[in-house]
Every structure is written in C-alpha cells, then in structure tokens.
Computed example of a mutant assay.
Amino acid sequence: MKRFLLAAVLSLLTAGSTMAQTVVLVRHAEKVDASADPVLSEAGQARAAALAAVLADAHPGHVFTSPLQRTRLTAGPAADFHSVTVEPIGFEGGTPAHVAAVAARVRALPDSAVVLVVGHSNTIPLIARALGYTAAADMADCEYDRLTMLDLNGEHTAAVVGRYGAPTTC
C-alpha cells in the first residue's frame, strides 16, 4: 500500500499541471537529540537524501522551511539538486502566524509553481489545512515518513498522502 501511495504521489508530481500549484509537505527528518535546535541524525540524513530522490523529477522551484536547522537540513539535498535557495519563514507571532505566512507565501506564487515545504509535526498538518486540505491528520512526534502532495487549483485542493524513506513506527 505504501508503494502504491508513493507511486501516486510521484505520478502526480511528474505529470504536473500548468493550472495548479503542486505543494509537497513533509516534516523534518529525524534529529540527533531533543535539544532546541539539533542537527539531523544519520537516519535523518538518509531521509533527507531519500526526499531529494523522490523529488528528483518534480523540479521544485521554491523551498520553504522554518528557521530551525533540522528543517533546513532536511530540505537541503533536494534544494541543492534543483539549485533552489531554501527560504526560512520565521515564527514571529507564534505558530498561527508562521502557518499563515507559509500559506500566504505559497498562495502568492504562480499557478504553475512546484513548492517544497519542510516543517514540524505541529505545523505541517496546519499548513496543509490552511492550503485547503481540511482532512489533514495530526502527526505523532515519532512520525517522519509522511509526504503530503497537494494540488492547488483555485479554490479546489486535492491531496495524496504517501510515505518516503525508511518507514517510521509509532
């Protein structure tokens, strides 16, 4: 089932629509420890590489993260592969303001944009909902392998949820 979902995500990413934005949402990869701003563990580095591989044919032109290094490090290999600069969006005003800022930044892009957003277990579902995917499930703190692909077409949002990299267990 996981392979089918990932294949569907990849199919939609590579098919592309000139009339809809494609937004890929993932949580940062596994971190080395529970400190305030940790780097990625070896498993996290492998997951970041897996994300780059999944997005190799997707051609994201924009990459948004939080300002924390674990999100930037997760996005880094994919951004490097596509020669895109990672754009951190701050937490000024708290989580609701961050979510609104990410959604506004995505919505301001051209209709044909492909966007990667790397956030946190508490922000990625909120960002998905802010972009119109109201059924976005909350994430457990131990979940690192969810990839949500949104197709934003005006007021309509379609979503495919898949998994990438090594499976995580909660």
Rank of each mutant, 00 (worst) to 15 (best):
P67H: 07
A7E: 12
S41T: 11
V118C: 00
G154I: 08
N153P: 08
H59E: 00
T18A: 14
Q21T: 02
H82W: 05
V39I: 08
L10K: 14
T123S: 15
E92N: 04
H59G: 00
A158Y: 04
T65F: 13
N153T: 11
D33R: 08
D141N: 13
V117N: 09
Y133M: 07
V32L: 09
V114Q: 05
P38L: 07
D33I: 15
Q69V: 10
T71V: 03
L10F: 06
M149D: 00
D151R: 15
R163E: 07
Y164C: 07
G76S: 15
F91G: 06
A15D: 08
H98A: 05
S66V: 11
S11P: 04
P67Y: 04
A58H: 00
F81C: 03
V39S: 10
A49I: 03
L13E: 15
E155A: 12
M19H: 09
A135L: 14
L150T: 07
C170N: 09
S35A: 05
P88Q: 09
E92P: 04
A49T: 09
Y133S: 05
Q69F: 04
A135R: 15
G132I: 14
D80Y: 02
D80Q: 12
V84N: 10
L51H: 02
P77K: 01
A140R: 12
P125W: 10
D145H: 12
R163P: 02
A50P: 00
L25K: 12
E42S: 11
A50G: 01
V114T: 14
P125Y: 10
V161D: 02
M139L: 15
L55E: 09
E92Q: 05
L13F: 10
T71K: 01
A53K: 02
A159N: 03
A100L: 02
A137S: 13
G76C: 11
D57I: 00
A103M: 03
G132L: 11
A75D: 02
V161S: 05
D138M: 02
Y133D: 10
L147E: 12
V86H: 04
S66M: 11
S17H: 07
A36M: 04
L55N: 03
T74W: 04
E42G: 10
S41F: 08
V102S: 12
A46L: 09
L131M: 08
L25Y: 13
R47S: 01
E92M: 06
A97P: 05
A52F: 01
T22W: 02
H82Y: 02
I127A: 12
V84F: 08
P77V: 06
D138F: 09
A166E: 12
E42R: 05
A58S: 01
D145G: 12
V23I: 03
L131S: 06
G162D: 04
D111Q: 08
G94Y: 01
A159F: 00
D80R: 07
A100K: 13
A166Y: 00
T169P: 00
I124F: 04
L126R: 15
R3D: 15
A15Y: 10
L12I: 11
P38H: 06
S11E: 05
H28P: 08
V106C: 03
A128S: 08
A50N: 01
C170L: 09
T71C: 01
